[in-house]
């Protein structure tokens, strides 16, 4: 129960939530590729339709999807500005050393739409998939890298442990902070140096407890005979069900349509 909800998972029960995370992960990749494939208005309309139907299917309130756009607004603005000013073509307005071209406007609009679609599309994935399910999916999808001795399982395990520790450490930070405030500590006033010094009573206990927790966890894992990925099975292995096959078909169809549209330039 922290202020920071991990990732941005929105707990509810929808078709998208129940879908196999591998489908969602690769589906999102396909969607992003498609976004950069399509060129004409029909192509954008198809992508928009795909995005809107995904949002509706996910049962996630629209404002949560909008919220995910907030951190990238600045990047979007800069990208659009550069596209607007630096695309060569038929000049419409000239102002000092800047000139705005018709192609520039078109490019900026396209870029803006692409970025909005891209970010909201991938946030649909993170809104409907728990971080753990996602790591699980990645472990399976990148499993082939084991052949060239990439420790896929270990990397996935480290990722899920790190993810699991974020809320724990957030809570711990909150607790220690409160405890020190209760002892009269002041984290809010003073200059930079004073504030940095004020962090010591927070950071020292936090590090001590992080190390202690890491030790405890390592011990607990060893006590359960954990020794890496070799020969390890899962309690709930990812299995494709009917809905997942249908989803694969939909994704494939979507990709095919987008390739056609890209070739024709519609």
């Amino acid at each position: 129960m922290g202020e920071i909800t991990l990732g941005q998972y929105y707990p509810t029960n929808s078709i998208l939530h129940r879908l196999d995370p591998r489908v969602k992960f690769l589906g999102t990749l396909v969607y992003i590729v498609a976004l950069f494939l399509v060129r004409g208005p029909v192509g954008y309309a198809v992508c928009a339709a795909a995005l809107i139907s995904m949002i509706v299917l996910s049962k996630v309130p629209f404002r949560y999807v909008l919220k995910s756009l907030k951190p990238v607004v600045l990047i979007m603005a800069v990208t659009m500005l550069f596209n607007l000013l630096l695309t060569p073509g038929e000049v419409l307005w000239r102002f000092w050393i800047f000139k705005i071209t018709e192609e520039g406007i078109r490019m900026a609009a396209k870029m803006g739409i692409r970025l909005v679609f891209l970010v909201s599309g991938s946030s649909i994935m993170t809104l409907t998939t728990t971080p753990n399910a996602l790591t699980d999916a990645m472990e399976r999808l990148f499993g082939f890298l084991k052949i060239i001795h990439v420790p896929v399982h270990e990397i996935a395990m480290m990722m899920s442990i790190a993810l699991r520790f974020i809320p724990i450490l957030t809570e711990e930070t909150d607790k220690i902070k409160k405890a020190q405030i209760a002892r009269g500590a002041d984290f809010e006033t003073g200059g930079f140096v004073k504030r940095m010094r004020a962090m010591i009573p927070l950071l020292v206990p936090l590090f001590v407890s992080a190390f202690r927790r890491a030790n405890d966890l390592a011990m607990a894992m060893e006590a359960r005979c954990y020794h890496g990925g070799a020969g390890r099975t899962q309690m709930k292995p990812l299995r494709y069900r009917k809905a997942d096959y249908i989803a694969w078909a939909v994704v494939a169809a979507f990709l095919a349509v987008c390739i056609c549209l890209s070739v024709t330039g519609w």
């Binding site: 711990e172 220690i176 405890a179 020190q180 009269g184 009573p201 020292v204 206990p205 001590v208």
Partner: peptide, 29 residues
């Protein structure tokens, strides 16, 4: 907070100073 002292659960997790006396002095300081 100096009038109403609050000892949290597992308060030993909030110790941070180099020695016992300095740590206890944190509040009065």
């Amino acid at each position: 907070r100096t009038h109403v002292g609050l000892v949290f659960q597992y308060p030993e997790n909030q110790l941070f100073e180099t020695d016992v006396l300095t740590d206890v002095m944190f509040g009065p300081k």
